[in-house]
């Protein structure tokens, strides 16, 4: 069954067919959500919200763009809305992420001091990514987490490829500016 046929079947009332789309795209949506929230549990909740929203607005999908492109847009919008709602929880989230990254670490040759240093570096990097302006952050996440080409990012963000290139360049410069004093050379 093609995607268009699946969507038509869902719109005709066969809701069980939606699971085919969920299974196909859940990893993609989860990865994108991770780029925004940096937490497995929050990313799973976001993924659920994205698919529920997609299901509810499936009738508005006119096929002018590819289904994944449309789904990416919903993912980005839902993630940004969630982040704006949770701004007051930012401190708790950072603390939670620090604990999570400490417990999720692979036990390697690193001693506790090195592990703590890595946790602090990770926190600083996440904070720097989170502090990027919205469009730069979106372009950065879609490029780095989803490995999308600039053309695909432009289709999702509904802007030109040149704009995407500029956004990515500015995001890279901003991150280097913020992180160079803290980590790396």
């Amino acid at each position: 069954m093609s995607e268009q046929q699946i969507i038509q079947a869902i719109l005709n009332g066969d809701h069980s067919k939606f699971e085919l789309l969920v299974v196909k795209y859940q990893s993609m949506v989860f990865r994108t959500a991770m780029g925004f929230v940096h937490s497995k549990e929050d990313a799973e909740d976001l993924t659920q919200d994205v698919f529920i929203r997609a299901f509810q607005s499936l009738s508005s999908f006119q096929g002018n763009s590819e289904f994944p492109t449309w789904l990416y847009r919903i993912t980005v919008n839902t993630s940004i809305n969630q982040l704006n709602r949770n701004k007051h929880r930012a401190f708790l989230q950072i603390a939670g992420n620090m604990l999570q990254s400490m417990f999720n670490k692979e036990t390697g040759d690193k001693n506790p001091h090195q592990e703590l240093e890595q946790t602090e570096q990770d926190t600083a990097i996440r904070k720097a990514i989170d502090s990027l302006p919205e469009k730069q952050r979106t372009a950065f996440v879609l490029s780095k987490y989803d490995d999308l080409a600039q053309k695909e990012i432009a289709a999702i963000m509904q802007c030109s490829e040149g704009s995407v290139e500029q956004l990515l360049q500015r995001a890279k410069t901003n991150l280097q500016k913020k992180l160079k004093p803290l980590i790396g050379k």
Partner: peptide, 14 residues
Amino acid sequence: KTDDYINKLIDREK
């Protein structure tokens, strides 16, 4: 480099 640190974290999250 700073970019390496960023890419390593992103790889881990991915």
